[in-house]
Design a protein around this nucleic acid. Sequence first.
DNA 1: CAAGGTTAGTACGTGGCACGAACTAAAGTA
DNA 2: TACTTTAGTTCGTGCCACGTACTAACCTTG
Lengths: 167, 167
Amino acid sequence: MTSPDDTLPSVAPSHAGGEPVLVDVDALAQLSFLVHNALDEIAGQRDLSITQARLLGVLRDREPTMNQLGRLLGLDKSSISGLVDRAQRRGLVTRTVSANDRRAFQVSITDAGRQLIEQLAAQFAEQIELSVAPLSDADRQRLSQLAAQVVASDAHRRGIDLRTTPR
Amino acid sequence: MTSPDDTLPSVAPSHAGGEPVLVDVDALAQLSFLVHNALDEIAGQRDLSITQARLLGVLRDREPTMNQLGRLLGLDKSSISGLVDRAQRRGLVTRTVSANDRRAFQVSITDAGRQLIEQLAAQFAEQIELSVAPLSDADRQRLSQLAAQVVASDAHRRGIDLRTTPR
DNA sequence: CAAGGTTAGTACGTGGCACGAACTAAAGTA
DNA sequence: TACTTTAGTTCGTGCCACGTACTAACCTTG
C-alpha cells in the first residue's frame, strides 16, 4: 500500500500550446491514479501489493509456469521467483513440478488465495462503482464503453507494433 | 520503470452476479493500468520512477517544505527525505533553509529538473493523445469530461468524508 | 549417443520505494 | 526557564524490480 488519501497531483502540462485541446490528459491521468490508488488501498488492507494482487488475479483461471507468469505480468523471471516465493510462504499459491518438463513449475492458486483475491476484487468493484455512482446510468455506460474502446485499440496497436518490429 | 509492455490482466470479477451491470469495472481498471504504465514507461526512459516524476511535477509551481511535500504526495516524511535526497543528488531539486523557520527547508526544482519534467509531461501527453486518437473528437471530449467529473466528485467525497470523520 | 546450445528457474547483489520508531534541533508555550 | 510540539534525518525492515551468474533439464545435431 502506498498513498491511500492522495492529492493526485498532475504530471501533465496545462496545455497552453497552440492546437485545440483534444483530450484532457490531466483528467485521464487523475482518473488513472484514482483507480490505481483504490486498488492499492484495498489490496493493502489485506497486506497485498498491487503486484501480488495481479499475481492472484492472473492465477484465478490459469496455472502458468514461472516463465509464462513473467510474460503475463510483464516482469523478469528473476522478479517472479521472489514474488511467488512470498505468496507461497503465505499459502496463497503453490508450485507443482510440471508433468512434461521437470525444470518447470505450474503455479496454482490455493483456496486461501482464491478467497482473498475474490474478496479483494469484489471490494474493488464496489469501490469503483461508488466512485462512478454520481454519473447517470447513461454516462457510466458511456465511460465504460469509451474506456473499453481505448484499451482495445491500444491492445490492437501493440499487436500491430509487435509485427511491424519483427521480434 | 516496471512493465512497459503489459498484459494488463484484470483483477475485477466478471460480474456474473444478479443486479444489472452498472459499470465495466474491468475496463476502467485496464484503462487505468494503460495510463499508469505509459507514465511509468516514459518516466523510466529518463530513469525516473513515477514517484520522482510526481515530485518534480508538484515542484513545477510550488516550493514546499519537506513536510508539505509529504502531504502533497501522500507519503510519510521519512519517505520524503530519501526521495528528495536522490533527486538532489541528480541535481533535479535543491534544499534551501527556510527564512522564518530554521528547521525547515524549501524544496525547489532546478532548471535541469524543470526541463526533465516538462519533456516528460509533453511526451506523456503525446502518448495519451495517441492512445485516445482512435476515438472521435466528440468521444475524446466525452471521455475527458466524464473522467474529470468522476475525479471531481471523488475529491469532493473525500473532502466530505474528512469532515464526517473528524480528524 | 555424446557435445553443445537453449530454456526454466534460482540466487545474489543493487537500488528505489515506503513505512515505523527513535533521534536531534529549532520553535512555541506555560 | 522548563515542557511540548514540530521539522527533518537516520536506521532497520520488507517489497519490488532488475541484471548477472549459476544449475538442471531439455533439445539438437553430428
